[in-house]
Computed example of a mutant assay.
Amino acid sequence: MNELDTLRRMRASLAESESEPVRLAGVRSQVTARFGERGPRVRLPRMGVRIVAVGALAVTIAAGVTVAQNLGGVEDNGHRRTVLPGLPADPVANAAQALDRAAAAADSRPFTPPRPDQWIYTEIRLRTTVKESGGVTGGPYRTIVMRAWKRADGKKSARIENGQVKIFNEFGRTIPPEDYPSLAALPTDPDALLRWVYAQNGEKPGSEGGYQLAFQTLRVILRENLLPPRTEAAIFRAMKKLPGVTLVDNSADAAGRPAIALGRIAEGWLHEEVMLDPKSYAYLGERTISIKGHTFKGVGDNPKALAGYVKKGVLQNLMVRTAAGIVDEPGQRTS
């Protein structure tokens, strides 16, 4: 089962409320995905481990804030920082150059680790179809806002439920990990990090499926977490080592913000992309575009409603992470 199937199944139960984040649980692309709320972690039967859905079609499962944590985020007046000392001002020529600059920017970013009792707050805005089910075959689109909190010690999570903050004591073990201690302990050597990713996914380097899953996994870690600078830099350097990562657009649009888009082809017809700020090289979000026509089969209880045909050039999803920051209490947003 691919990620389009996962998203189509998820849309059938996706709430439209901006205040209720949702969580998609996936068992990689070849295993039936399981969907659940971002409360108690969805666990896989008899496995005890939830594998976080990867890829641009899993962007519906994230979190967010009002101030960007990345170097080159936003100033007090709400405008994005545009000056990053030490980095060339000229546009990047290829994906390798963009990822080198992103790694250098991450390395130079000031960072104070969260205390164990503090919370990591994130906000993500997803632009996707208005359809409650079915693949994204074109507009009209709608924007969904997802917010969530994770305590830095990895023992609690929180979300808004019925207008109130609800705290969950079970955080759960996930692949890739979501708790800050595990993320801070990830290898900072890009080769070692890739070996860890392949091992976590049960893959070996050398296969297209392994490369794509590695690219998706690294994107999930970037998207959903507040990372130590060395860890973030290692992710960009690991992406550089994956075959097939190319520069797509030097002037992409990330929901009204200029962006660099780079990515890989997935399943032969999707282009899954990471978007970076063109001046600060901070992570902005992701998008997925069909690069050729594709017919997908229906899944679930109503396969006819979930089947469809996607034309070349159709935007599947545009996800922008407003920011990620540290707060003292769940329900609190950074300012």
Rank of each mutant, 00 (worst) to 15 (best):
D5H: 13
R11F: 00
A15W: 11
S17Q: 07
P21Y: 00
S29H: 10
T32D: 15
R34Q: 11
F35R: 12
E37Q: 15
R38S: 11
R38F: 09
R38M: 14
R41C: 07
G48F: 02
V49Y: 02
A56F: 08
V65G: 14
V65A: 15
N70C: 09
D76V: 01
D90R: 11
D90L: 04
A95F: 05
A98V: 04
A106P: 07
R109K: 12
P110C: 05
D117L: 09
V130N: 12
V130I: 09
P140R: 11
R142N: 04
K150P: 08
R151D: 01
D153I: 00
S157A: 15
S157Y: 14
I160N: 07
F168G: 05
F171P: 13
F171I: 04
L186S: 03
D191F: 06
L193F: 06
R195V: 14
R195H: 03
Q200Y: 03
E203N: 09
P205F: 04
G209F: 10
G210P: 05
L222I: 02
N225H: 08
T231E: 02
G244F: 02
V245G: 00
S251F: 08
A255I: 10
A255E: 13
R257A: 09
P258S: 00
A266V: 11
G268S: 05
E272F: 04
M275P: 01
Y281M: 03
L284R: 02
I289T: 06
S290W: 02
G300N: 06
G300W: 02
K304I: 11
K304W: 15
L306W: 05
V310C: 01
V310G: 02
G313S: 00
A324T: 15
G325V: 02
G325F: 06
E329A: 14
P330H: 07
Q332H: 08
